[in-house]
Computed example of a mutant assay.
Amino acid sequence: MRRFSRITGTGSYVPPRRLSNADLVAELAGKGVETSDEWIVERTGIRARHFAADGVYSSDLGLEAAKNALQAAGRIPQDVDLIIVATSTPDMVFPSTACILQNKLGANGCAAFDVQAVCSGFVYALTVADAMIQTGAAKCALVIGTEIFSRILDFSDRTTCVLFGDGAGAVVLEASDTPGILASDLHADGKHVGILCVPGHVAAGAILGDPFLKMDGQAVFKLAVGVLEDAARATLAKAGKTEADIDWLIPHQANIRIMQSTAKRLKMSMDKVVVTVDQHGNTSAASIPLALDWAVRSGKVKPGETLMLEGVGGGFTWGAVLLNL
């Protein structure tokens, strides 16, 4: 009998500190940076974001999301035999944030590792977990996206510092006799490294290069819309489905304009697109599972519905997953 994987629980967590656009604009003004709520909303759709407190790390945010997902799935940490964490803001150079989170969760002994695909990270991690469950390497996986992007932002650059927030999302993915994950499609093209990156690194006890996020917004937008459509269509083709079979599109929450353009290309109404970017900003690898959990807990997305998850991020990486909830 063929083995499949299904999501059995979702969870998310955002830090308590919430900054509306007005709050952020006031903070930036104190640093001599001019922007406005109108400017941010018009270009991005973002109205608020959450920032982690000092001393809080990506593993801490991911831990809370993981606990919520386990509770929703009716599982305990000892049931988990695989932990994959998607993050671009790890607690430290090594060990992996997954190993740190594993110990905090009390799921010691199972396989645990990080995936680094920036904003596509959760789609990558979910695809890897699905493959490991299908081959019998795991039965119950925690797949987590967690980020603290506020610590890699240049708050003198208004084109980037208003875009990002901190948060985490998680799912429990379990072996099943019936298909949950229907198909996926992953890609990367390293020639686009320069349009979205953090080019610094640690060497000889110092930071070499620039430790802040750099982005060519126009180049990212142009590339993102095209590859998101391509990945969605390729995934549908693998599953033998069409756009009409998608009940909900849950894209990476980067920019409302990218999301609107993608939905239009897929002939989908924005009424069928889960949007949380207005309240969370761009939380990179956390954005898709965070949006998924919000949609599930609000009752918007229901069991049995077909979801298209898709992300695009630095690398450049992109991909999509089609699943039955």
Score class of each variant (00 low, 15 high):
residue 34 E to V: 15
residue 35 T to P: 11
residue 35 T to V: 08
residue 37 D to P: 14
residue 37 D to E: 09
residue 38 E to K: 14
residue 38 E to P: 13
residue 38 E to F: 05
residue 43 R to N: 11
residue 44 T to Q: 10
residue 44 T to V: 06
residue 46 I to T: 10
residue 51 F to H: 11
residue 51 F to K: 00
residue 52 A to N: 13
residue 53 A to H: 13
residue 54 D to S: 13
residue 56 V to H: 07
residue 58 S to N: 06
residue 59 S to W: 08
residue 60 D to Y: 10
residue 60 D to V: 01
residue 60 D to P: 14
residue 62 G to E: 12
residue 63 L to W: 15
residue 65 A to W: 08
residue 67 K to G: 05
residue 68 N to I: 00
residue 68 N to F: 05
residue 69 A to N: 05
residue 69 A to H: 02
residue 70 L to M: 15
residue 71 Q to A: 15
residue 72 A to Q: 09
residue 72 A to K: 01
residue 74 G to I: 07
residue 77 P to W: 14
residue 78 Q to T: 13
residue 79 D to Y: 08
residue 79 D to S: 06
residue 82 L to M: 12
residue 82 L to A: 02
residue 83 I to F: 07
residue 83 I to M: 04
residue 83 I to P: 02
residue 84 I to W: 01
residue 84 I to G: 02
residue 85 V to F: 05
residue 86 A to T: 02
residue 86 A to I: 01
residue 87 T to S: 11
residue 90 P to C: 00
residue 93 V to C: 05
residue 93 V to E: 14
residue 94 F to M: 14
residue 94 F to S: 10
residue 94 F to L: 09
residue 95 P to L: 01
residue 97 T to S: 12
residue 98 A to H: 02
residue 99 C to F: 07
residue 101 L to R: 03
residue 101 L to Q: 08
residue 102 Q to L: 10
residue 102 Q to T: 02
residue 105 L to T: 01
residue 106 G to Q: 11
residue 106 G to F: 11
residue 106 G to H: 10
residue 107 A to H: 07
residue 107 A to G: 12
residue 107 A to R: 04
residue 108 N to S: 14
residue 108 N to I: 11
residue 108 N to T: 12
residue 109 G to S: 12
residue 110 C to H: 13
residue 111 A to L: 13
residue 112 A to F: 07
residue 114 D to A: 04
residue 118 V to C: 07
residue 120 S to E: 09
residue 122 F to I: 03
residue 123 V to W: 11
residue 123 V to Y: 11
residue 124 Y to P: 05
residue 125 A to S: 13
residue 127 T to L: 08
residue 127 T to I: 03
residue 128 V to H: 07
residue 128 V to F: 10
residue 129 A to H: 00
residue 131 A to K: 09
residue 131 A to F: 02
residue 132 M to T: 00
residue 133 I to C: 09
residue 134 Q to L: 01
residue 134 Q to P: 10
residue 136 G to S: 10
residue 138 A to N: 09
residue 138 A to G: 09
residue 143 V to W: 02
residue 144 I to Q: 06
residue 144 I to K: 03
residue 145 G to N: 10
residue 146 T to M: 02
residue 147 E to G: 08
residue 147 E to M: 03
residue 147 E to Y: 09
residue 147 E to L: 03
residue 151 R to G: 06
residue 151 R to V: 02
residue 154 D to E: 11
residue 156 S to D: 15
residue 156 S to N: 14
residue 156 S to A: 12
residue 157 D to H: 12
residue 158 R to A: 10
residue 158 R to K: 15
residue 161 C to V: 09
residue 161 C to E: 14
residue 161 C to G: 14
residue 163 L to A: 06
residue 166 D to K: 01
residue 166 D to I: 02
residue 166 D to V: 00
residue 166 D to H: 01
residue 167 G to T: 00
residue 167 G to M: 01
residue 167 G to W: 05
residue 168 A to T: 01
residue 169 G to K: 03
